[in-house]
Design a protein around this nucleic acid. Sequence first.
DNA 1: AGACTAGCCAATTATGTCTA
DNA 2: TAGACATAATTGGCTAGTCT
Length: 288
Amino acid sequence: MKEAPERLLGSSFLDLSSSFRLFRHEIRDPIETHWHDFFEMAFVISGSGWHVVNGERFRLERGMTFLLTTADFHEIIPDEHSTIELYDFIFEGGFVRPGLLEEVLRHRGWLQYTFAGEEAREVEQAFEQIRKETEPMRWGSPMLIQGCFERILIVMARALPGEGLNAAGPPRNDPKNKLHPSIVKAVDMIQYHFREPIPLSTAAAYAGLAPNYFSECFRKQVGIPFQAYVNDKRLQFSSRLLLSSDLPVTEIGFAAGFGTMTHFERLFKRRYGCSPRQFRKNRGGAPV
DNA sequence: AGACTAGCCAATTATGTCTA
DNA sequence: TAGACATAATTGGCTAGTCT
């Protein structure tokens, strides 16, 4: 049986003592498509290039700030002769106060915004303050850093056009508004952890319901059974990765959270009507 | 070598009923 | 609303073999 591919795990980048870490990177060569088991926010200080997130290509320049979840994959390509300098803040979901990430990310899986002028300077200063607090860490540093980071998060969420983040709460059209709060908690958890094994019992405990009752509520409110929902997330992730990378099918299957290739291919064929390789060959279209 | 298929079987999950 | 239980359906792991 094949081994699961190596991924960027939080355990290898985060200290045992803290749930966050700040890097200041200088990127001269392309960083190939990759994904993480932690959240990541980056702020571009200088340089230019391209940022490819989940297959979508964006111009990367000073002020560009992005927040990625464990469900996203990305690639950074500096322009020729350009060095991209950026602050890279990685953290575990529990680092910020409960509900904040879910609220900020509610409208789409990840966020991106380019700050300009004075705003960009303010965000850069906030990252600079975080850097000062980490070198060295002192008493109270984690709390100050958390505050600093949450401020950046909120400023960024407010700056996004038409996202509807305001004191009145989430927008009316959000399908999750119709769901029971317990089910919303489980849906949020699945959103960021579908690449890991999630037994029904774990999701039910997360939602605070008995497993059989949770199963019933989930299916009634979401419209499809729990396992079908998790598999759907995994298939979406794998199909995007198939079309936007050259990674082997095997690696993509494991990366999406499937335990075996057999199972991945079986579900994939059922959903898309062709094998993963055919899907890639046909660029997502119907097989010929 | 990597991708894919098929069959078998155990584990997990969905579902329904009863009860508190 | 939720626990206990029984049963049916589905999922997922394993193996072996073929195809590209």
